[in-house]
Design a protein around this nucleic acid. Structure first.
Lengths: 345, 345
DNA sequence: TTGTACGCGTTATCAC
DNA sequence: GTGATAACGCGTACAA
């Protein structure tokens, strides 16, 4: 009952053909006569034979798998991540590619035993400045698509799918300013994220263009992933600015759902009502951890699953699976979804 | 600049050792002298050499990857899935395993070219009766852990991680009955899911034990994944029962967030208020697609990420990565989280 | 079509 | 106990 897996030689022998022919029947790289094809197939079925994926990869140097690297610490994905992953998987499966979830191996290089990635290409989420994953992929000549701008020294052009971050933060600021807000607190992403740099610039520029002075208390950066106050970021900064510094903030822009939730908890503790006393705007729209939140949150929809799909599409082009010319950068549209957390002042 | 990847022979030559020694340095299967080890390592770094994962897999027959198969059609994961995946990934990475997301390939065996799964083991989510994936894994002798009961003919004992579904539905029913509800509609999972069978039985038994007659309109099953009304399941059934059949339902139990959301939309259209007119209970707690919902939903927390972690742990035992004896089945606790969608009648 | 030399490591087996 | 040698795994590709 515990039969060994049949090998190509077994099939070849029983079907009275050579290994090569069996290989061709399965790979269809060379035509084979109908007769032979059928014989091989029937023997294969009988022996329960399927080509060994590993052996094949060894020679073709293709694995039919792409890596998806997502930075993470000990915490869980946000809804943005989830939807993004959805998009990646869905699109990859359309081309017969499987998706290998890769946690960023930012920790263990204890033994310098970092095996070759058995992937044909990769999608890199949330690139940081001088991103280690990107350095690695580049060193190993593995094609990759980054979600966001790549800022690694020595790495020239690279493929990327991105939102227009300058525009996004600009739109948000203008939206809030139009509602009468001038004292806006921006809970930005981590400082090392390339995206946070763009958004910070956009924030400063937009406020300047609207003749609003950018004050120190307005811009904040999420701590590093392993910092103790990572999860409390929104809460801490909010309390700090509103209570300790006693600033009269009228609107908060939160980088993601978690941060928004955290900030709103702070507001609640401070006795402030959303949106009556203060407006809250979330950049990533879908809020898995906030189902208990009310009011619903006005947000910028980044279309994460679309980002995922486009990144795979681009990667498939790069891998030659999709033919034709392709751009080096794809921009996915974002748009404001008005809900109930932002109101006129 | 476009250097070929260094091979083990290159390292061996430059370090004045043999292939085998280089192999030993990396695999640490045999001790090597400190001196040699350092020389090999330094040369490796110089050449940017890392062992070829594929070649290694070919001989060891291990891939250091586990598959995670999730049934899906053309739609997106629910929050339950996401959290579950989180748990799996987190735990797998602790053992140096990568996770291969496998969508169930909807059985397109157009060419009978189904390559060997390059995985050491698998986690099977939402097993169905006579599940094809399980049949395949069993045929290929790939160890697997199922989330829920396996009901495949010919397959005896198998590892599984599960919630206590009988208890879950029983607890929910008793909770609702205690609130005074007696006319309860149960939007169950798909009929082909093993879990739905258990829950149905539990539902019937509990109501019977509370001397409530189980009527036809009470139990519903989600259509197949590819059915046109799959996404509208909750809506349709709700309208059907409440309006067409004119039943006086006072509580709805929804199998997942999507279904609950769908049903609540129906209630809204019918002019019914939750929880004032009708209570809603959700079985899977975290509701990514329901951030706009209010009130917040009382739910049964199945601890999906814990389920994911436990399943990997069990699989690691089965693969011999974790030593020691282990149970064949692990039960993960579930508990009711009271929010605002269920009230006394 | 067939034969056969690869690909790139690992794992005995053997020699020092 | 260490290091070197050779066979091996399972397909693919190319020449015959």
């Amino acid at each position: 009952m515990f039969q060994e897996m049949a090998k190509i030689d077994d099939v070849a022998r029983l079907a009275n053909v050579s290994k090569g022919t069996v290989s061709n029947v399965f790979s269809q790289k060379r035509p084979t006569s109908k007769e032979v094809t059928e014989r091989v197939l029937s023997v294969s079925k009988e022996l329960n034979y399927t080509p060994n994926h590993i052996a094949r990869s060894l020679v073709t140097k293709k694995t039919q798998a792409i890596g998806l690297t997502i930075p993470h610490g000990n915490f869980f994905f946000s809804a943005f991540h989830h939807q993004f992953i959805n998009g990646v998987i869905l699109e990859a499966s359309r081309y017969g590619f499987r998706v290998l979830l890769d946690m960023i191996p930012q920790q263990e290089v204890k033994t310098p035993f970092l095996s070759n990635y058995p992937i044909d290409g990769a999608v890199v989420m949330s690139p940081a400045v001088e991103d280690e994953r990107i350095r690695l992929l580049d060193a190993k000549n593995i094609p990759f698509v980054a979600i966001g701008k790549v800022m690694n020294g020595g790495i020239g052009s690279s493929l990327s799918v991105d939102s227009d971050n300058r525009k996004i933060i600009g739109d948000i600021c203008r939206y809030l300013i139009k509602l009468g807000h001038r004292s806006i607190m921006f809970l930005n992403a981590g400082e090392q994220m390339t995206v946070s740099k763009e958004r910070k610039n956009g924030f400063v520029q937009t406020l300047a263009s609207q003749r609003i002075e950018v004050e120190e208390y307005m811009i904040h950066h999420k701590p590093a992933i392993d910092a103790s106050d990572y999860l409390n970021y929104g809460y801490k900064e909010t309390v700090n600015v509103l209570k300790r510094l006693d600033k009269k903030v009228t609107a908060i822009i939160a980088d993601d759902d978690r941060t928004a939730f955290s900030a709103m908890n702070a507001l609640k503790d401070l006795g402030l009502n959303v949106p009556h006393d203060i407006s809250v705007f979330v950049i990533c729209g879908d809020l898995s951890i906030m189902h208990q939140s009310s009011p619903s949150l006005t947000s910028m929809d980044l279309q994460p699953s679309e980002l995922g799909m486009q990144s795979v599409k681009l990667l498939m082009h790069r891998l030659g699976v999709l033919k034709g010319s392709y751009p080096e950068q794809v921009i996915v549209e974002s748009r404001i979804v008005e809900r109930n957390s932002c109101v006129p002042i």
